[in-house]
Design a protein around this nucleic acid. Structure first.
Lengths: 208, 208
DNA sequence: CGCCTATAAAATGTATACATTTTTCAAAAG
DNA sequence: CTTTTGAAAAATGTATACATTTTATAGGCG
């Protein structure tokens, strides 16, 4: 496991206090490596939004910011339906079947951890979006998901919301199977909107 | 001037052949530094789209890809009007005045280089968008502009297009001044669409 | 003659050592 | 008592040296 992955993992676990600054030396000792791979990892994490620049030097762990979540989900609302429309032109039974398999797995496997649910969630969307064959747009959406992950790991989702989310996923698939691209896009937009609201409410309900 | 800036500058100037791979050792010698700052620069440039991963190791200079441009401008079409709407709620005479100053400078200064025009162009948009006070959305849009820059530097814009673009800029300002946010958004979307088409046509007209 | 393998060369990843910059803390001046 | 200033400490930036991995090449085998 690379230093990058380990630091990211520890950030997801909330091991580093938001607002605190990370020191290369400390991290190097913590992971028993030199500062060079730590520097590489920090820079990459910074470019991905897991860390933010701190003053003229160094990086800091970002605070949880409901306004950032709002923007991330607004952007997803604007971009993902677009991507889905491109994908719809190339979707076939095989791809739709794989997508459904992922949903079924999510439904039927009891006791999944938040991380596992998130992974399947992403796999589902990626499966559909990949079919669009739009590498640039796809990468941008992936990056947004990546940035959302920081908050999703923090939130312990209610079972209630989980259920609603799952229903929406199936609704998207149904619409796609019937060739109703517009309908699928609308559900998707709603889906993202609801997820964003849930996160924002959660953050506002538990201010730090 | 940092190594990062120098490499980026040379990429803009087309000094490195698209498709070729960049070697840390060569760059280190070229700029008379060690490989460490070169590594930092390469990683950052990779995260910004100026370079792409190459196999398991190393980075390559990306080819010019009309499909990438399409996606970049599609995303801008979806995100920038959104940002403009947020900005509109907070715009005042002072900000609009500054924006107009930038346009006037562009108009009245003869013989501006492509780079200078691009800088003013970006300054104009940033001036408006900054007022939105939406750091996350703003940063995402800035990143898209950054990625577009790679192509814009490559394209020598026709005077004709330059004139049209400038008219659209003024049209956006006019609409904002009259409180017609919807109108301004529409013009902006058209503006981006036209710019994207011009670039794509240019790239298709001169295949590599 | 083509293909596979092994060895050498080259490129990247990492550690250690040094240089430079920033921050901190304490002492002295106002 | 507050503010300023300067030196020490700490953190980051950079260079050199070494380790590991990848790639290229030459030689042998089918």
């Amino acid at each position: 496991m690379s230093v990058y992955q380990r630091i990211k993992h520890d950030l997801q676990q909330g091991r580093f206090a938001p607002g605190s600054t990370l020191k290369q030396t400390e991290l190097a000792e913590l992971y028993s490596v030199s500062r060079i791979p730590v520097r590489d990892a920090l820079q990459r994490l910074k470019s991905e939004g897991w860390l933010i620049p701190h003053g003229k030097r160094g990086v800091a762990v970002p605070q949880f910011d409901a306004r950032e979540v709002e923007d991330l989900y607004l952007m997803r609302m604007r971009l993902e339906p677009l991507l889905l429309k491109f994908a719809a032109e190339r979707l076939n039974g095989e791809i739709l079947g794989r997508a459904r398999d992922i949903l079924d797995r999510m439904e039927q496997t009891p006791g999944l951890s938040a991380a596992e649910i998130g992974a399947l969630n992403r796999e589902f969307h990626a499966c559909l979006y990949h079919a669009a064959e739009r590498p640039t747009l796809f990468a941008a959406v992936e990056q947004l998901h990546e940035q959302c992950e920081r908050y999703i790991g923090y939130q312990s989702r209610s079972l209630d919301y989980q259920h609603t989310s799952q229903r929406e996923h199936y609704a998207i698939l149904e619409a796609l199977q019937q060739g109703d691209v517009e309908g699928a896009s609308r559900v998707l937009e709603q889906h993202i909107s609801a997820a964003g609201r849930a996160l924002v409410d959660y953050l506002n309900g538990r201010p730090e």
